[in-house]
């Protein structure tokens, strides 16, 4: 089975049970990531991207109970149904995580050097001394100048970009096979965003890691990812190789997203061509297509039943749209 992808998610459904309500933020999503590949997961905020990636690995906040079904195979091992003590061994060691907000992701009262070094102690069984050395190496690796001094600083003494680099250093410290980056640039200044993205891409290639890059910004995807999953309201709308999906988007939602990317030829001050309408608030799963209220192509059949993901004209791309798939069948 040496051909099996590093990460194989199939038909994953996540239910979150909270004191106020039950929601299904992930509803039957499938995708794979091979070693050395980068998968982009794109969707508006609230579409379930974070939950989809974090819930199977036990990274949900207190106050929420998680119900998982479907399958998440990582490195030949089924994660769903594994006890927390086993999943914990996967976190940090085999999978590194990067969070959206580097301001709050680091412990404010501990030196950043310790926060990196403890990873090396835990996963590479290093002595504290050796771990400090390793932290220094890592901090150089993520491109921080004056590394020795930085190690002794506290998070609030660093800028957002530097903090995100520290978070990346932490994620890399266990020498993971897979990096999950949850909107790693959203909370940063525009000028820093490109740097961090380039750093991530570069590290991924050099260390030959697989990467899941979560973003709500189609513009980020083009140069960075090999494959793409477009999420809308807990479900995958379209999935396929980036070059194909970006060039010929089929699902009306994907088209809307790509249309919304600002273009160079736009006159300055021209109107933002965002999608009309707002994404639905999640709760119980939708009957029919969740995008119907905002969709120009919607027909009555769209709301009757959930459109299945089906191969489009290009067999590498799958699309969950009744109208698009009907046309293909007709052709």
């Amino acid at each position: 089975m040496h051909d099996e992808p590093l990460l194989n998610v199939s038909n994953l459904t996540v239910d979150l049970l909270t004191a106020k309500a039950a929601v299904r933020p992930v509803d039957g999503v499938s995708y794979t990531v091979r070693q050395g590949e980068c998968l982009a997961i794109v969707g508006e905020s609230g579409s379930g991207k974070t939950v989809m990636n974090f819930a199977p690995l036990g990274l949900m906040p207190t106050g929420v109970t998680t119900n998982l079904s479907g399958s998440v195979r990582f490195d030949g091992r089924e994660l769903i149904g594994l006890p927390e003590s086993e999943i914990r061994k996967v976190r940090g060691k085999s999978i590194g995580f990067i969070f959206q907000d580097p301001m709050s992701a680091l412990n404010p009262v501990r030196r950043v050097g310790r926060q990196i070094a403890e990873m090396a102690e835990l996963h590479l069984k290093m002595t504290p001394r050796a771990a400090e050395e390793r932290a220094l190496e890592l901090i150089k690796l993520v491109g921080i100048s004056d590394p020795a001094a930085r190690l002794r600083q506290f998070p609030h003494e660093l800028s957002g970009g530097l903090r995100q680099r520290i978070v990346i250093a932490i994620a890399l410290a266990g020498e993971p096979k897979l990096l999950i980056a949850d909107e790693p640039t959203t909370a940063l200044d525009v000028t820093v965003q490109a740097q961090i993205l380039r750093l991530l891409k570069d590290l991924q290639r050099r260390l030959n890691m697989a990467m899941v890059l979560i973003t709500h910004d189609m513009g980020v995807v083009a140069g960075a990812a090999d494959n793409i999953v477009v999420m809308y309201a807990a479900r995958a709308a379209e999935r396929g190789p980036v070059d194909k999906v970006l060039v010929t988007p089929r699902h009306p939602y994907t088209r809307g997203l790509i249309n919304a990317i600002p273009r160079r030829e736009d006159p300055i001050g021209s109107e933002f061509r965002g999608l009309p309408g707002i994404p639905p608030t999640l709760g119980a799963p939708f009957k029919g297509c969740a995008f119907a209220p905002r969709c120009e192509l919607a027909i009555p059949a769209c709301t009757a039943s959930r459109p299945p993901l089906a191969r489009s004209a290009d067999s590498a791309v799958v699309v969950a749209c009744a109208v698009v798939n009907q046309r293909k069948a007709a052709a």
Binding site: L17, A19, A22, T65, A284
Partner: peptide, 16 residues
């Protein structure tokens, strides 16, 4: 935030 009480948890399970 606290973990759900057994009662709420059961209610949510039924909902799901």
């Amino acid at each position: 935030p606290k973990p759900l009480s057994r009662r709420t948890l059961a209610l949510r399970r039924i909902e799901v």
